[in-house]
Amino acid sequence: MKSVQVQNPDMAWHIAANILFPPGFDESKKFPTMISVHPFGSCKEQTSGNVYGKALAEQGFVVIAYDASFQGESGGSPRWIEDPTQRVEDVSRVIDYAVTLPYVDENRIGVLGVCGGGGYAVNATLTEKRIKAVVSITGVNIGRLFREGFSQYDPLGALEAMAAQRTREVRGGELQVNELLPASPEQATENGLTERDVFEATDYYKTPRGQKPGGATKMLFSHAQKTLAWDAFAFAETLLTQPVMVVVGQKVGAFGAYRDGMEIYGRATGSKDRQLVSLEDWSHYDLYDKPEPVGMALEKLIPFFKKHLDEPVAARRRDAAE
């Protein structure tokens, strides 16, 4: 593994990334490359990097797992901004970096995202045609979630509160950084926060199971307005033409990954190959790191990526032969 800082000419900050290499890596050769997008409130050292990224690298892919702008080890200020437009632009900027690397095959780039990262990965694929295939793991449409549960089904009230808080902050007031989860599973239980997704997220992010320094589960409240007007799947019927795989668990939780997964699978009618992997008896956070459901997902997504990221190579060979 190699840690790097991605710096684009049009960025005032860097993106921190880990590059994972396949066994027998040879820099003089070209490799299919995966951009791995972490969940909302997560970081590159968690499920996107140390579970799915690691597994894909072991299967022959170069994997770039990175921290979103304003989060983890990436730059940008103020901290803990969750801006969907920026999150999607980060994908393109990481691809910009990838295509400068001599061992990256620019015609064999895929993207994988987990949770909110799944929604961002799909959205990036709509317009970023350097992406040749996309996999969403228990993907969530963050815009839909903010308009509903995260705003207590009062998006206009949330926008008014964000506007007032932003005014306070630019006048010198203290930043409002919201912690998204209870401090521990025990505290969640004590406070009656036992809904499946909330409790299981706490068990992942707030215990040694998944806890990492960069996975802060925080959000700057005053800068989240644009999230409420964003839709991960807008224009998918027209613009999502690349192969897409959607992996969901059938144990439904409040964050809505099952619902969002079924929606984008249904709407991806222009995809060259759309596949749904619906796992009975498994939940959203089981798919972060539990060996059995992760293994079931990998059994489907690894052949999917190998099939579609090898197609451009085969096509070039056919063209050369002709």
Rank of each mutant, 00 (worst) to 15 (best):
G249V: 02
D67M: 08
G49H: 04
Y285S: 09
T241S: 11
P303D: 06
S278I: 13
T207C: 09
D319A: 15
D197C: 04
A232Y: 07
D286E: 01
Q165S: 10
S278T: 11
D281Q: 13
F146H: 09
E106A: 15
N123P: 03
A297G: 06
L279T: 00
T269W: 12
R166E: 13
L56N: 02
Y288W: 09
A133F: 03
V246A: 04
A321W: 05
Y205I: 01
I302W: 00
A257I: 08
K54V: 02
A164S: 13
K129F: 00
I19S: 06
G172W: 05
K272S: 12
K218E: 05
C43S: 15
M219E: 12
Q275P: 08
K251L: 14
K29E: 10
D10W: 15
V104T: 03
T47E: 04
F70W: 08
V122I: 15
P32T: 02
T138D: 08
I64F: 00
G249Q: 07
R267K: 12
A201C: 12
V111F: 09
F255M: 14
F61E: 07
Y103H: 03
L279N: 05
V114D: 08
V244C: 11
I19L: 06
V246L: 09
S151P: 05
A321G: 02
Y153I: 06
A164L: 10
G119C: 09
Y258E: 14
F40R: 13
L287Y: 06
W282Q: 10
Y285I: 06
A216M: 12
P293M: 03
K290A: 13
A121E: 04
S283V: 03
L56E: 02
R93Y: 12
T207S: 10
R108K: 06
P213K: 06
G60T: 01
L240C: 06
V94E: 07
Y265F: 10
R316C: 08
A98W: 05
V244Q: 00
T241E: 11
G75C: 02
E45G: 09
G119L: 10
G118K: 02
S48C: 14
K251D: 13
Q152T: 11
E200I: 05
D231R: 09
N141H: 10
G261T: 01
D310M: 14
E311A: 15
Y258N: 12
G41Q: 05
R147A: 00
F150T: 02
F255T: 14
V277N: 04
A124N: 06
D83E: 11
G261A: 01
I35A: 07
K218V: 01
Q165H: 10
L126I: 01
D260K: 06
G295N: 05
K2S: 10
S3E: 15
E89T: 15
K272L: 14
I35P: 05
L156W: 10
E179P: 00
F21A: 04
S69K: 06
A121Y: 03
G172P: 11
P213H: 07
L309V: 09
K132V: 01
M262L: 15
A65M: 08
V94I: 15
H38D: 08
V244D: 00
N50E: 10
F235Y: 13
L240V: 01
Q59P: 06
D83C: 14
